[in-house]
């Protein structure tokens, strides 16, 4: 009998109070008196033993299922690892591609650092996607944390570190060296270990240190809102265009005009140096921008 009663209630579209497991629940915006009538009827319905959703039961069931799936997954993975090729021993199947990179990276890309040569020339499409992952992350953080109306300031007034002398003095010493090291790593990406991402991260950390040690006003003067947007836009735009030039020339067999230069000198390895600088700028500005969004919600 209750099933027919429920179908009748369902057809007359009165709200069904049993919510599904784990969801936020339906939006029920009924007028006030309908709500009261429904509430009375719902209490009667619930008291007839149809137990409403119980959070505790869901938690234990979820716990058992999650523990079981985690244990099975890790056990299976460990047995799979046992059957994999030995660690530290030459894996001949992997060597076909790796040996080509090791033997030909110097004359193909002109980069002494094979990893940079591989990232920015052989498999450049991944790295193009990579810097756009960072660009997406910056914009998602902007969406969530940027406060456009100046009025909303009040809420998180930070313990301002600028009058903290220890940090200020240490900052005076560390900031130039960190940023210098960052630029060194960025510019020598194709010669020594490092490259666009590592150099950019170090320069980003340096910018964050300036903002922390010398306060928002000083760092806002160095990286204003306008330069931030224009610089990161042009760096990404240049990166996109330079890479599409090399893809287009490569795909259609046109010889690209960019010279590879003498290996070992700074201005060698064709497009890799400008690309490293562009990626470095994008990464450092993104890291700095995300820090400022967390700290103050605006770049000014």
């Amino acid at each position: 009998m209750r099933i027919v009663d429920r179908i009748r209630r369902w057809l007359s579209e009165s709200p069904d109070l049993l919510e599904d497991a784990g969801g936020i629940g339906e939006t029920r915006d009924l007028p006030r008196e309908v709500m009261r009538r429904e509430q009375h009827e719902a209490d009667r319905f619930l008291s007839e033993g149809a137990k409403s959703f119980d959070r505790k039961k869901f938690r234990t069931v979820y716990g058992i299922l999650a523990a079981a799936s985690a244990a099975i997954l890790i056990g299976v993975l460990l047995t799979a690892v046992a059957a994999l090729p030995r660690y530290g021993v030459e894996n001949e199947r992997m060597d076909e591609v790796a040996d080509y990179y090791i033997d030909h990276a110097l004359e193909d890309t002109g980069a002494v650092n094979i990893v940079s040569g591989m990232i920015l020339d052989y498999r450049a499409f991944d790295t193009l996607g990579e810097s756009f992952v960072l660009f997406t992350a910056l914009n998602c953080v902007l969406i969530l944390l940027r406060r456009d109306e100046p009025g909303e300031e009040g809420e998180d007034d930070y313990y301002d570190l600028t009058h903290d002398n220890i940090l200020r003095k240490a900052g005076l010493v560390m900031v130039p060296s960190v940023i210098l090291f960052g630029f060194y790593v960025m510019l020598n990406g194709h010669l020594s270990p490092g490259g666009g991402f590592s150099g950019g991260a170090v320069v980003g950390a340096g910018l964050i240190l300036t903002a922390a040690a010398f306060g928002n006003a000083v760092s806002a003067r160095i990286v204003t809102e306008k330069t931030f947007r224009i610089l990161s836009g042009t760096a990404l735009g240049f990166y996109c265009l330079a890479k599409s030039y090399s893809f287009y020339t490569g795909a259609n067999g046109i010889e690209s005009v960019v010279p590879l230069g003498t290996p070992g000198s700074i201005f060698s390895a064709g497009l890799i140096l400008p690309l490293d600088i562009a990626v470095g700028i994008v990464v450092s500005l993104t890291m700095y921008g995300i820090y400022r969004m967390f700290r103050k919600g605006s770049l000014t």
């Binding site: 270990p193 991402f197 170090v202």
Partner: peptide, 15 residues
């Protein structure tokens, strides 16, 4: 893998 060492140090503990 020295590239990864610099990136992980700057990004992991740093940022």
């Amino acid at each position: 893998a020295p590239d990864l060492a610099i990136t992980e140090a700057a990004v992991g503990a740093g940022v």
